[in-house]
């Protein structure tokens, strides 16, 4: 206490000296300069890098995407008036991240289905493309991990999310993607892809943006929590052991019927042929050996 008093007393004595004012002024200026250096230029830099990213994305877009989607993402119509490449204003960065990030875009050729294939852009380039397309019109942004993850929840809440997600999945998704998320056939040669092994981010983005023929499940349709529940269910179902037998791709009666007919009935036919073919006869007459 005495020490504190003495220090305070010394400070207050120094404060009255003329140098003190100058010192405080210098200190204030120094602090302001430091703070400005630390924060203000950083913001300016971000804006500059945003513009640079959009510009980088535009250049990538002109090379890889503009042939079908138009140089400004306005879309290209065929002579008969059908879509060659759809307009991209308003699809948002989420659509770009999904389509390019899963290798669907750029397409090898226009067709009924945009299949998954090896990704050819780096994540930085995809982000740049996304920034450019997002600059064309307001659309859904790439979701944060917290939006589609149930990591933060307690074990009980996670289990609840999985159960709820299963109900939502069976009501809204199984019509096209099969009861186990294994995918299925669609009209005119298309197909709904398998959901197995798909990253949660891409499932969330697909729900949000409705790639190809898929309807959208915007946040006003299925809330982000509902989407996270569906993703939790899908991840849980992938980890489930096939307890009762081989899943045969979870394609239901098609795969199972094929297996039963080819392997089951085929095996029985083979067995019957084997039985009939192995009926050896002896040239000896009965009683000759005895």
């Amino acid at each position: 206490m005495r020490l504190l008093n003495r220090t305070a007393g010394r400070l207050s004595r120094h404060r009255r000296r003329p140098v003190a004012g100058l010192l405080v002024l210098l200190l204030g200026l120094f602090a302001t300069g430091t703070f400005y250096a630390a924060f203000a230029p950083a913001q300016a830099e971000t804006t500059a890098s945003d513009a640079a990213q959009v510009e980088e994305g535009r250049e990538l877009f002109l090379i890889g995407c503009a042939f079908c989607h138009g140089t400004n993402g306005e879309g290209v119509l065929t002579e008969s008036g059908t879509q060659y490449g759809p307009a991209l204003a308003g699809v948002g960065a989420a659509a770009v991240d999904f389509q390019v990030g899963t290798g669907r875009m750029p397409l090898v050729q226009p067709g009924q289905q945009a299949p998954r294939k090896p990704v050819i852009y780096s994540q930085d380039e995809i982000d740049a493309l996304g920034a450019f397309v997002a600059s064309l019109g307001p659309g859904p942004a790439v979701p944060e991990e917290s939006e589609y993850s149930v990591e933060g929840l307690s074990a009980e809440e996670q289990e609840e999310a999985v159960v709820r997600g299963g109900e939502i999945f069976r009501t809204n998704c199984t019509a096209c993607h099969n009861f186990d998320g294994a995918g299925g056939a669609m009209p005119r040669g298309g197909y709904a892809p398998s959901l197995k092994g798909v990253e949660p981010k891409y499932i969330y983005e697909a729900l949000l943006t409705g790639p190809q023929s898929m309807p959208t499940f915007s946040n006003g349709n299925l809330t982000p929590e509902d989407k996270a529940d569906v993703i939790a269910y899908l991840q849980e179902s992938e980890e489930q052991p096939t307890y009762g037998g081989f899943g045969l791709g979870s394609m239901g009666p098609v795969a199972e019927g094929l297996f039963a007919w080819v392997v089951g009935i085929g095996g029985l036919v083979g067995f019957a042929i084997w039985i009939a073919a192995h009926s050896t006869r002896s040239l000896k007459q009965k009683g000759t050996t005895e």
Partner: peptide, 9 residues
């Protein structure tokens, strides 16, 4: 809340 392209069961 519904956007164009939305499907609700």
């Amino acid at each position: 809340d519904l956007e164009i392209g939305d499907l609700v069961n």
